[in-house]
Nucleic acid binder design. Structure first.
Length: 637
RNA sequence: GGCCCCGUAGCUCAAUUGGAUAGAGCACCUGACUACGGAUCAGGAGGUUAAAGGUUCGAGUCCUUUCGGAGUCACCA
């Protein structure tokens, strides 16, 4: 699925230097050796830093038909290219690697074109629509670190797709029904004594979560009492001799909940009442869920994310039955004697999968089948991305396979953006052991860390309180977000809270600092009477460009040049970490440039103008790039 | 046990999709402008890419086996 997209990609870019070289190589090989080579073999790669050059062609594959040594081919090819492509000034050959040097004028022309283009890197609309589902919480507990990774991936992915030219719909599915929320409801009803988030001053989703925890506590207490009394006989029969209390409870918990527990019985009654549409139960359910939504919304705002549409499982959990009928008719599904309906996916190595119970009710995957159809009707998106943890890999393989067999029109555009779970240095996050990292706590913590660091520096002390708070929020969140997004989604990651608040090194604030340095220089330049417009391309005071470019400048410009392609591949791979790493590399290159070369005290007026242009362009790309990750840039810090 | 994913410096992560001497940051050591912001920069040390075979001009990347770790295999969601 990813391969055709990549091909489409390179053909859609027009007149880029990369394409220019590529087609020139194909033509040259044809001319020199009479062989037509596939485009991949002519694709230039970026030259490694330790060699002179901008792009490299690997000549080893050509030995087969050229009947020459790689080095000789490289020499011939290099000479031919430099002669025929005006943008190439010279070349050198190392082993079989042909390093091509792009003319300074090409780079400086390019820089002038983008220096004041705020939209550089954003592609025009491509007419395609993509839906991205992310977050998808339960309503019985507040958001935690796992949700944070999910939300950041989903959000940045949506921003990247938008920049790549797609129309994006951001949706989430909220699991608002089932036994879990009934537990919170019951606990509140029995022990809440009419308390509300307002009356207790608790953030409303935490308020509801606290009752879920309370239920579990009371349930445990009830079990302990039962264990010592009425349950002794049952336990004597079921418990194996070598099992510890804890081990046994783990296995036995569900049975106890369903068959013996008073609280469990009441919770199940509540669920039945809910399903029967009992008004009082519905009202309570409505009220408590609303508290949760209000709390979630606060967290979303803090994280700077929003959604276009919310789907509620209470409204979708019955969907999908007509799909089952449809699949039975077309032979995608089959019916067993007991009336249950199955999909046979053994030829796709996915085994048999039930899609409808023998009592005619739907299962989880049936609901997903129905929801997919419903969304397609809602938005007509030919691509749908599900941002869901990798523990559901199998589920999505099955879901997509079935949709494909059903011949759904969007089936080819389905993608599971699977991401690894977040581990803590102490191991896995476990709610039972209290080792979950709460999203709100985490956000507060990183902002505090930014405050401490800022206090020592004293750079923003003279700003108003509100301005300071805004900056600290941007810095703290940049640290947190970048720390999470920079990791390839697919990989499981270790989250060390100490490292997440680091402000130095490979971090969000390090990149923000590059931006702040630029803003500071530009302010100073403006104070000295310089205005970008005065030395811009075609401006009244156009300054002639320097003929030669310093290596640090060259590296920066070449880096800027890659930005649009980076956006496109990040979108094609649904991988925000590529943008994160791009931004870091760019910031790093800028810091080096900044310390090595003087800007306002440059050797000539031309060099000064050129470098200011470069600064403006870098600031622009940093702001756009980090914006794609949901990270804001402060002007000072 | 079947299927699937992962294993790179002490730690956290890269590696332009098969290319050159495997790179960054943290931590450790050394150094830098009376300069546009030191949340910076330069340098040092740190690697048998879990192991062994194979494919080829070339393998961290592809294939096979082994070891280690995670996930999943409900008429739960």
């Amino acid at each position: 699925m990813g391969i055709p997209e990549k091909k489409k990609l390179s053909s859609s870019k027009t007149a880029s230097i990369v394409d220019l070289i590529q087609s020139a190589v194909i033509a040259a090989i044809q001319e020199l050796y009479g062989e037509t080579i596939p485009a991949e073999q002519a694709a230039p790669t970026v030259t490694r830093k330790e060699f002179e050059g901008d792009y490299t062609i690997v000549t080893f594959p050509f030995t087969r038909f050229a009947k020459k040594k790689p080095g000789e081919i490289a020499e011939e090819l290099g000479a031919h290219l430099v002669k025929n492509v005006p943008q190439l000034t010279r070349f050198n050959v190392v082993q079989g690697f042909l390093n091509l040097v792009v003319a300074d004028s090409f780079w400086s022309d390019f820089l002038l074109q983008i220096a004041d283009n705020q939209d550089f890197g954003r592609a025009p609309k491509n007419g395609q629509k993509v839906m991205i589902e992310f977050c998808s919480p339960n309503t019985n507990k507040p958001l935690h670190l796992g949700h944070v990774r999910n939300i950041l991936l989903g959000w940045s992915c949506s921003q990247i797709c938008e920049a790549a030219g797609y129309e994006v719909k951001k949706v989430q599915v909220i699991n608002d029904r089932g036994i879990a929320i009934c537990k919170s409801m019951l606990a509140w009803q029995k022990f809440g004594d009419g308390a509300t988030p307002e009356s207790t001053g608790t953030k409303s989703d935490h308020f509801v979560g606290d009752y879920y925890v309370l239920f579990e506590q009371k349930f445990q207490e009830e079990y302990k009492a039962w264990q010592a009394g009425a349950g002794q006989q049952v336990l004597g029969e079921k418990r194996k001799a070598d099992q510890s209390d804890e081990q046994f409870f783990k296995d036995f918990k569900n049975t106890y909940f369903n068959e013996y527990s008073q609280l469990g019985g009441e919770a199940r009654e509540m669920l039945l009442a809910w399903e029967a549409g009992d008004p009082a139960t519905k009202a309570l359910w409505q009220r408590m869920n609303q508290w949760v939504y209000d709390g979630f919304e606060e967290t979303f705002v803090k994280l700077g994310v929003s959604f276009d549409k919310y789907y509620y499982e209470s409204e979708t959990y019955l969907l999908g039955k007509d799909i089952v009928e449809q699949g039975l008719a077309s032979g995608v599904f089959y019916k067993k004697d007991d009336g249950s309906v199955w999909a046979d996916l053994t030829d796709a190595k996915l085994d048999h999968k039930v899609v409808m119970r023998s009592d005619g009710t739907s299962v989880y995957i049936t609901q997903d089948l129905g929801t997919a159809q419903m969304r397609y009707q809602d938005f007509g998106t030919e691509k749908m991305v599900y941002v869901v943890a990798d523990e559901q890999n199998y589920h999505f393989q099955v879901l997509f396979e079935i949709l494909k067999r059903l011949g759904e029109p969007y089936a080819a555009g389905l993608h599971h953006l699977s991401y690894g779970m977040v581990d803590l240095p102490t191991g896995k996050m476990k709610s039972r052991e209290g080792t979950v990292v709460d999203a709100d706590d985490l956000i507060a913590e990183v902002i505090e860390e930014a405050r401490e660091a800022s206090k020592e520096r004293g750079e923003i002390a003279e700003l108003t309180k509100a301005e300071q708070e805004d900056i600290l929020r941007k810095i703290g969140l940049a640290a947190l977000k970048f720390h999470i997004i920079k990791v390839t989604p697919q990989k499981r990651m270790v989250f060390d809270p100490k490292e997440s608040v680091d402000l130095q090194g490979q971090t969000g604030p390090h990149i923000q600092y590059a931006y702040v340095r630029i803003k500071s220089v530009l302010r100073k330049a403006s104070d000295l009477g310089f205005r970008i417009a005065d030395f811009g391309l075609g401006g009244a005071g156009t300054v002639e460009l320097p003929i030669s470019i310093e290596p640090q400048e060259r590296e920066l410009i070449a880096q800027l040049y890659r930005f649009p392609a980076a956006v496109q591949t990040a979108a094609a791979n649904y991988d925000p970490s590529e943008i994160a790493n791009y931004c870091y590399d760019l910031a790093k290159a800028f810091h080096r440039f900044f310390t090595d070369l003087s800007i306002l005290k440059a050797e000539t007026e031309e060099a000064k103008a050129f470098r200011l242009q470069l600064c403006a362009a870098v600031a622009n790309v940093l702001k756009t790039g980090m914006g794609l990750l949901g990270i804001e840039m402060p002007d000072r810090m």
